[in-house]
Design a protein around this nucleic acid. Sequence first.
DNA 1: AAGAACGACAACCGCTCCATA
DNA 2: GTATGGAGCGGTTGTCGTTCT
Length: 298
Amino acid sequence: MGRSPCCSKEGLNRGAWTALEDKILTAYIKAHGEGKWRNLPKRAGLKRCGKSCRLRWLNYLRPDIKRGNISNDEEELIVRLHKLLGNRWSLIAGRLPGRTDNEIKNYWNTTLGKKANAQPSPQSKQTSQSLKKQAIESMTNTQSSKPTMAIQVIPTKATRCTKVLLSLQSPPPPPAPQILSSTVTDDPSQASLLDQQQASPDFHCRPEEPHACDDGSDFLNFGPWSEFQPSDGICGDALIDNDCGKNLPIGSGHSLALSDDLFFKDWALNRCLDDNSTLDLESLAHLLDSEEWPEMRH
DNA sequence: AAGAACGACAACCGCTCCATA
DNA sequence: GTATGGAGCGGTTGTCGTTCT
């Protein structure tokens, strides 16, 4: 389907933003909020493409952006997350509050990528597509693998978290445990994750927005489940139902055996963060540092 | 001191996904 | 079911400052 360009490029400024433009954009967004990027330049009186405005805001002007050197902890986290997620910068950035995908991408390309090349990792160059494929392959192979975890399989397809909402007021947690349920509790690090998830019902929530699923289970639904239906040869009854409130077979002995690797990818994909929340860097670090971690990475 | 090479980062581009009419 | 617009993502390019020769 053909698409009109997001904006006419004629008469628009390009290149570096001026201080005045920044000021105008910031003032406009503070007054009217984000969104409607296509119309924003016109309304704000900027001679810029809407996309450009969005990028400028997200990568530079946003008040919660942390600027400055990336700490060693952050660097280590980036490296580890990159091993898990590949070049999915937005997901990685989601785990580093105040950092933007662009910043992390640049940092990787200029610094970490070279280090990684010096210490080649089999996964370091994975693309989203290859990750996805790998995930699917992994899933289709897991039926014969050791059923160590009862994790519902989540497609690694990155789905934005903007509509993943939980109630702040009363999220009666679904009776069934959530994503890391059942058989993973032996590991203290994972238990810690569980605890944090359950103890923090508002993580990655936007209180001002309506809730996608009142029972709080919707945060588990973040992908085209149709891709992973039983017809795909996957143990369907181990999958979470796409409907809110229906859950995975918790503690069931026949739950889908998900590869450990995929489990962590899944975890990483789902741990969307609230912009205002303290990052659970600790929990992630805990996870990454856990004794089982090296084994899980193959 | 001058120019080349390099590094860091901002910005752009094209593609894809999702929501909606 | 389809077309379209809005928005986001990842790859790439451009620019500027710093270091090296």
